[in-house]
Design a protein around this nucleic acid. Sequence first.
RNA 1: GCUGCUAUAGUGUAGUCCGGCCAAUCAUGUCGGCCUUUCACGCCGACGACUGGGGUUCGAAUCCCCAUAGCAGCACCA
Length: 482
Amino acid sequence: MNAPKVHTHELPTLERAEHGVVMRFAPNPSGPLHLGHARAAVLNDAYVERYGGRYILRIEDTDPKRVDPDAYRMVQEDIQWMGLRITDIFYQSDRFDQYYKIAAQLIGLGGAYVCTCENEQFRLLKQAKTPCPCRGRTIEENQDLWQKMLGGEFYEGEASVRVRTSLDHPDPAMRDFPAFRILNEPTHPRIEAQVYPLMNFTVAVDDHLMGVTHVIRGKDHIANTRRQRYIYEYFGWNEPVYRHYGRMGIEGVVLSTSQMREGIRSGTYSGWDDIRLGTLRALARRGIKPEAVRQVVLDIGIGETDISFSWDNLFAKNRDIIDPVADRFFFVPDPLSLTIAGASAREAHALLHPGDEKKGYRTLKFEYEVLLPRQEFQKEVKMIRLKDLFNVHVDWSSGTPVLTYAGESLSDARALKAPIVQWLPTGDATPCTLHTPDGDVQGLCESAVSSMADQVIQFERVGFARIDCVTPDGITAYFCHK
RNA sequence: GCUGCUAUAGUGUAGUCCGGCCAAUCAUGUCGGCCUUUCACGCCGACGACUGGGGUUCGAAUCCCCAUAGCAGCACCA
């Protein structure tokens, strides 16, 4: 009824940001974006908006095992939906030559070496803080082996490049982490390669080359940040400012792309936009607006606390946005057809929006027979009021409800605490399936809803819903929230 | 096991750096009332938290120590 109130916590200031920032959103194209991605994407976007600067989209597709070719498109769609102000786009798969070149430099500096140990063997040595045999190779030997790697002289698993850190580092996660590996398959959808760079290497190199000034990401990257610093130190690069926010879970939802994919494969979910999923496209399908996602993400902020996010908070933000604009219609779930005696045929006029008369009215023709929600006749109701029409008496003496006209007076209905219910003329009812996370609800709705495809409306007394598609067979709607 | 991060009401969040203005903010939620031809919106009210234990101090949500819990990393994933 009133303008949506904008209440959002202000994000904390960033150090060294006064003269503008360069930030990035760097998803792995393994599937569509979900709420977890939205947090990173929106937080970075908000800071770029605040301080000015560039916002880089970097597609981190350096692991062919985790690249879904469709995801390149889906990620772009999701970014568009969020309305991110991206200024530059890079694909890491276009930059392998760059990574190879810098790897050679790092090896030349003695900052990395080629390791031909078996993986498991290296792991044991690392636990014991013991150098593996490869660690003692000369720079020249390493350069030679690196060229052999690039020349295809090693097969998968036979050689890798490691960044030399410190073997007695108290945190085992820091000890000589890998920077390149060899993969013979699967093939990468965009490039031909056998020597694949690993994330900690590409991220450090790209952040530097792209001039990234501030990195905001989840705290699951804290260890990666520390690893990446080694590379910065070897080259003497200036580090960006890092911020790590806490883990975010969402009640009742898996946010793991691989788990979602498995659920889709096994038939548990209908697809990436199954409304039980936390993907952005699933939210969009239900009628959640991108601005609501943005607001709620900014509200959560960049705290380092692990949180369990509640749908209620997102729904409340979304309601603020859609309630003032959503047209109202009647949807009668599980309808019961009843004839009302004693009333003359007439037309009812109902506001499209209770707070905005200028939007106009919809017209419902009363012609004796109406459809009512069966659920309203559970208990012995004596009177109900058909919204925007009139009151009816309910007589239960025959065992089934018999309705008779009971006057126009709204105050009578109030006095008797009669429920005011939605109804439909039998001649103006279109089949409608309302999909909810808890299952489908079959019912009928006003035929006028047919013109509301892709709109978010409110089914009075039921809740907000997005009209997904309209076919000759009926309407498909997705429940959003109350 | 090793390493690190975090800990304020059901949920999210402010305050914590620089101790007193905090008998702790705001939102959401729940309950009650009002308004209303929707179980929506709006309005009013209520409920509800500093993880525990020590210590420093005239004074601690805030500083220190210990404990506990949660999370993450220790991949030739990102």
